[in-house]
């Protein structure tokens, strides 16, 4: 994997942390998924069946799921800026520092390429941190996609790739989770008049 692709994947993950518009973030993640899909197509000598599976994954992750999230954004009332959201610089710096610290702390743990290993861990961490620092539920759902792209990248680095059943299963699960997340986002908008997850903090002991 080239340094440019790795930089692009990390940069798009970081951009999701700072962009203001939900639709821009969805497009960023769609592009990230598309780039990963192209990279997958260039990997390993592939049979036509494997190419079809990769193509299906690209269509689902770079087209269908972003389209579903864009539809959810469009159908929701126009979002006001969320008051409890951290400033953009803080949203960027805290996850960046944590992801870098994680990358330094965790030793090599077994994938063939160090670059891919670090990028996959960083994307998983940035996906989780997106859900932590962003308040809008759509951004938290995008965190799933960023984290899953990190896992997909790790899967691509395996010699011979992942079994087709697991690859398809991962995508199916992603479709289920993102669809449910979109249903939640729509219902939360309908119920609260906002997609601000900080309004959902009534339950505690």
């Amino acid at each position: 994997m080239t340094g440019a692709v790795i930089s692009g994947l990390i940069a798009s993950s970081l951009a999701v942390l700072v962009v203001r518009r939900r639709s821009s973030a969805v497009v960023l993640v769609a592009v990230q998924s598309f780039v990963l899909g192209l990279y997958a197509l260039t990997q390993h000598p592939r049979t036509s069946a494997a190419l079809a599976v990769t193509g299906a994954i690209v269509i689902v992750k770079a087209l269908l799921l972003p389209a579903l999230l864009l539809l959810t954004v469009r159908r929701a009332p126009k979002e006001r800026p969320i008051a409890t959201e951290l400033p953009a610089l803080t949203r960027l710096m805290i996850p960046l520092a944590l992801a870098l610290a994680l990358e330094r702390m965790i030793p090599r743990f077994g994938f063939t390429s160090a670059g891919v290993e670090h990028t996959a861990v960083a994307m998983l961490a940035l996906g989780v941190l997106t859900a932590v620092v962003r308040r809008a539920v759509i951004f938290q759902a995008l965190g799933f996609l960023v984290a899953e792209n990190g896992i997909y990248l790790a899967g691509l680095s395996l010699a011979g790739g992942l079994p087709v059943f697991i690859e398809m299963g991962l995508v199916f699960d992603l479709v289920v989770v993102v669809s449910v997340a979109a249903a939640f986002a729509a219902k939360i908008h309908e119920r609260l008049g906002s997609g601000d997850s900080s309004l959902l903090e009534a339950l505690h002991d």
Partner: peptide, 9 residues
Amino acid sequence: KNALEAGWK
């Protein structure tokens, strides 16, 4: 509202 919060969490 509480059920949505619990489900989302």
